[in-house]
């Protein structure tokens, strides 16, 4: 089964090019607006990934891979976990318990804000990287 089409389907390609920026924008919105509305790092990560997956489906994996290279993905995968865990370690180094964001600022509420921002970022990065790499693995293995 062909998971993507090249050259043909000009309409799809043009529409995709139009859609992708909006998907990315929406993903950013979901990432950083999760405090107020539904959403957060995980949902944003899936949306980010879906933009890349759409790109891969329409323009071919080769082109997507030149933007988001496998080695970059591997680094991002680990980086997200490190951001999340790092936030926890920083709070420990500041003398508080693991993941106690109150340590991050003088005002506990501000600290919470920073902490949640950081860990959501970590979630977003790992989820994006893992979802795209899952797509690479499943779409590009040949028999």
């Amino acid at each position: 089964m062909k998971l993507y089409v090249r050259q043909r389907h000009r309409v799809l390609q043009v529409v995709t090019k139009l859609i992708i920026p909006f998907v990315l924008l929406f993903a950013l919105y979901v990432q950083f607006h999760g405090d107020y509305g539904p959403g957060g790092g995980f949902q944003a990560g899936v949306l980010f990934a879906s933009a890349f997956i759409l790109h891969g489906l329409i323009f071919g994996l080769q082109r997507t891979r030149s933007v988001l290279t496998p080695s970059l993905l591997r680094v991002l995968m680990a980086l997200g976990v490190l951001i999340y865990l790092g936030t926890g370690i920083v709070t420990m180094l500041l003398g508080h318990n693991l993941l106690d964001y109150a340590a991050l600022a003088a005002n506990p509420k501000t600290g919470q804000h920073w902490g949640i921002f950081a860990v959501e970022l970590g979630v977003g990065v790992t989820v994006t990287a893992v979802m795209v790499s899952l797509f690479y693995s499943f779409a590009s293995k040949r028999l």
């Binding site: 680094v75 680990a78 976990v81 420990m92």
Partner: peptide, 12 residues
Amino acid sequence: VLPMLAAPLCVL
């Protein structure tokens, strides 16, 4: 935290 930190570091 220690083993959890080691896993992504291995990948890097």
